[in-house]
Design a protein around this nucleic acid. Sequence first.
RNA 1: GGAGAAAUGGCAGAGUGGUCGAAUGCGGCGGUCUUGAAAACCGUUGUCCGGGAGACUGGACCGGGGGUUCGAAUCCCUCUUUCUCCGCCA
Length: 428
Amino acid sequence: MLTTAIIREKRDYIIERLRIKGFDATALTGIILNSDVERRNLMTLSESLQAEINRTSKQIGAMMKEGNKAEAAELKEATRIKKEEIKRLEASLSEATAVMNEALLKLPNIPDETVPPGKGPDENLLVREWGEIPSLPDNARPHWELIKDYGIIDFDLGVKITGAGFPLYRGKGASLQRALISFFIAEGIKAGYEEVIPPVLVNEASAFGTGQLPDKDGMMYGTKTDNLYLIPTAEVPLTNIYRDTILNEGDLPVKLVSYTPCFRREAGSWGSDVRGLNRLHQFDKVEIVQITSPGLSYQALEEMAGHTGRLIEKLGLPYRVMLLCGGDMSFTSAKTYDFEVYSAAQQKWLEVSSVSNFESFQSNRLKCRYRKEGSRETSLAHTLNGSALALPRIVAALLENNQRDGEIIIPEPLVPYTGFTTLKPGKE
RNA sequence: GGAGAAAUGGCAGAGUGGUCGAAUGCGGCGGUCUUGAAAACCGUUGUCCGGGAGACUGGACCGGGGGUUCGAAUCCCUCUUUCUCCGCCA
């Protein structure tokens, strides 16, 4: 959510920049500015009435002490009338506030200067490519066949127990999963992130704070009786740690790393995109989050992108980094890098991480502020997050790219965590 | 799940209808003293919103929401959370 202050100051700039997200902000910003003026007028009126009432109340108190009841009664009547007036003013005020907030919630974040224009994925900018696309043997197979042959991930059992999109990992498949999580967490800790295990169910206030509510409740699983939501990403509980919080500048940057399962309802199935591990309702992800001062957030974005890239490199998977164009960015993001690994058998680039700077868009909602060193003033902090990494597509690429004749090679950095160096077909 | 108690500033903890944004202590910050530090002493120390170039000024906030009253931290209703006891339980 943008602040009204910035809309007041830079309306034209906002309208111009939001064009590259394909969004016309003229009407919304107009509504916001109008109701903002209206609000402040109403506030001034009702507060000055309240000030009069407060003064009068003290007078009445003094009169009662002196036993001057007749005069007190007169003042009481005057107060009664003012109170009615205040009630009317406040009704208009809350209406104006509702109009303003509704408009504010519909306004997306402003893309950073470096974000290219564009409508969709085709216009994203390739910023880096790493690794060689492996040439696989003729009998190479996509991961959804490999997992069956190797007996490591069972979709049918997931269907039996829960439903489609909830795979069951077993044997070395389960160990591999756990090894990846441990590896990613350990690397995060090495890079200075604090490990957190948060709740995976969150309340409405948290879902609102990071922007899943009110609009995107369709993406989350909810527990009707308790009004809780299963998290679609660790970003939700992690960033909400700092909801309604004032940090000291010296405590910044806050750097967190966290493994959680993630739950997404998503829409339906889109053909071959959803095969195997490509798109799931429940998946594992290690997430990194940073909270920084505004001056340092883009430096932090690059640092996080660097961290994510190094993880993929250590696993030896070819990948590319895309700078998302305006039209492909999320509502809340100011700048996003997507990381895609190449899954050699299905011959597809798979998104395994999305690293974003939200600037103060989330922190304004969350009321996450910080106090500058030696100052009493508070300002909104900047929030960032990224996956480091989402597991299923990493596993897909790893299985496909590393298949050899009759075995799949585990990348070396992972071996200390798996305890084995290869996967073999059949039940082990 | 049942019964009872409680929720006040960074923390501890007073305050049961008026001058209370709130005593006091601790902590924090600034100063005096000191070669330096400690101790002692003095001062200062919440957040949000509005108005103002600013000095400053108005309003709101004592777990959340609502109510009574001229006036609420204080009374009433409701929700949430915490603690104690009982039950159940990895």
